[in-house]
Structure formats: C-alpha cells, structure tokens
Design a protein around this nucleic acid. Structure first.
Length: 284
DNA sequence: GCCCAGGTATAAA
DNA sequence: TTTATACATGGG
C-alpha cells in the first residue's frame, strides 16, 4: 500500500471530480473515465490522487501531504457545517448542494489564480486549460516528469512572467489577453500591486486594488479573491449567475448568502451547468 | 462555417 | 448609469 490515505467524511466530504472540474482550477487532468483518478500541479508541486471506496489516496510523502495538499484541499475546514448553514438559507441552495456535495474551495496560489482568471475572460474552460498549459511550458520551471514520462512545469513566477514579451508568449495563443497578462505580472513584480495587502485588506479595498489591473473587471476580481485568496465572502457574477440571482433569488444580493457566499456560488455554478434550463429567464 | 465562451474596455445613449 | 460593440482564438 502506497500513498497517504485520508478519510474526507471527517471534514464534510470531498469528491475529486466535483472539486477539480468545477471551473476553479485549471491544471488538473482526469486519468480515468469516471473522474476518480486525477493528476495535477499546484504551484511547483505535482501529485496523483485516487478516490477509493472509503478514502482518498494521495500519492505523495507525509511531509508533502501535510505542507502542500492538506492546505490546498482545505482539509481542515468543516464543510459539513458550512453546507448545513447554506442549506438552511434556501431550499434552492439545498438542491444545488445535493448535486455536488463534494465540492471544496481550493487554496490556490494567488498569482497563479490571478493569471488564470485574467486568461479566462470570454473563453471556455477547455481553452483556459490549454492556454495555461502552454504558458507553463514556455516560461515555467521544469519540475520533473509524471508517471508516463510527460515533462512537468511549474506555473511561472511573477518575476519570470514579467520578463516575457508578447512575441515570446505568442505560442500561448491568448489573443488580446496576452497584454493583460504581461501587464499584471509586471505590476506584481514591481510591487505596484501588493498581493499581501490584497490578502489582508478589506473586501472593497482588495476589489479596487485588483481592478487597477487592466483586464481585471468586477467578475475577474471576485474570482481572484475567492480562488486565489480564499476570501469566501467574494461572489463571482457572470451572466449565468446574474440570471440565477434574477430568476432563483429575486431581490437577493450576494450578502444574502453570508460569510460563505463564494461557496454557495460554487454550488450554484455547478448546478447551472447540470441544469441550464433552470437558469433561463422565465418563459413568456 | 457557425456559435459561443466562468468578460473587459471603450464609446455612445 | 445602462446598453452596445470590438476584442483574438479555439472548442464543440
């Protein structure tokens, strides 16, 4: 028996497929057809994970699990309690949670999430994944090979990315987003954008600071706060979510969902992908 | 070929 | 303050 065994039920459940393929992280690939085995990279760390009948098996050392993956998967938070609070708020939320009760909000690297969601604008999820993979191949540091020999690359640091040019990044095929990405990296690298301040500042301060970056509007800023800084009060609103709020929660604002609004949003986003018809405007 | 994508910047109403 | 359009490009 190899790998670290972890019982996710103790922390409110964790389903790999629901968590790794729900549009919050873009560097994970399924290794089977059922979404039970995955490989992926966070920062400069690669891992393979398998969902087994009674546990999760992390193929890594104890130390890596403790220092990297336990925090990354937010395994010390009580999602059972968080879900129970959300269920009590509204029956629609109760239904949405039932469709993907194993979603958790990952603790991703702030700069990596910032870049990912700058690249996300007006793109579908498969394309976002492709752009990020090509970006890492171009200027990410090599971190070894996976089990089948594929070379692996870390996400580039802000300093490294800041030294790239539109020409060197052309193979990423990011279109008009290339300039936004380079500019963002240079602002972080120079200190003009201070990630530590954004981490600890008030929600509105951090929103404003992020939106000084070209290519970061209200939606992307909210995604960066939620996924990059684990600010669970943040609530990304794309066209689907606006529609959901209009049709399913008329008159309600994101504050209705409370301190874990971002988690509620993630359940609703997944629900909207499973049942798009429910999120259409009312007929007639 | 066509449509649209986890939007944003910009101009116009 | 709200509404329209261009933006680069690929996945389906």
């Amino acid at each position: 028996m190899t790998g670290i065994h972890y019982q996710p039920e103790a922390a409110g459940g964790l389903q790999l497929g629901e968590t790794l393929d729900c549009g919050q992280a873009f560097r994970w690939q399924p290794l089977d057809n059922q979404g039970l085995a995955w490989e992926g990279i966070a920062g400069r760390h690669y891992i393979k994970i398998r969902q087994e009948s009674d546990c999760l098996r992390f193929f890594c050392t104890e130390e890596e699990f403790r220092q990297i993956w336990r925090p990354y998967f937010d395994l010390d938070a009580d999602y059972g309690a968080m879900k129970e609070n959300l269920r009590k708020l509204d029956p629609i939320l109760e239904t949405a949670i039932a469709y993907a009760p194993g979603i958790r909000l990952l603790r991703q690297d702030p700069f990596e999430a910032m870049c990912a969601f700058i690249l996300s604008s007006n793109c579908n999820i498969p394309r976002i994944k492709g752009m990020i993979q090509r970006l890492c191949q171009i200027c990410g540091e090599p971190i070894g090979r996976n089990f089948d020999g594929t070379e692996l690359f870390a996400f580039p640091t802000a300093d490294t990315l800041a030294r790239q040019t539109p020409e060197s990044l052309a193979p990423v095929r990011a279109g008009f987003r290339t300039g936004y990405l380079l500019n963002a990296a240079r602002m972080v690298s120079s200190g003009q954008v201070n990630l530590a301040e954004i981490h600890s500042g008030s929600l509105n301060f951090s929103r404003a600071a992020l939106q000084t970056i070209r290519g970061v509007g209200p939606k992307v800023a909210e995604c960066i706060l939620l996924y990059g800084f684990h600010r669970l009060e943040a609530f990304p609103m794309d066209v689907w979510m606006k529609r959901a709020m209009d049709t399913l929660f008329p008159g309600k604002t994101p504050e209705f969902f409370g301190a874990d609004a971002g988690l509620a949003q993630q359940y609703l986003f997944h629900y909207s992908r499973m049942h798009p018809e429910l999120f259409q405007p009312a007929a007639g």
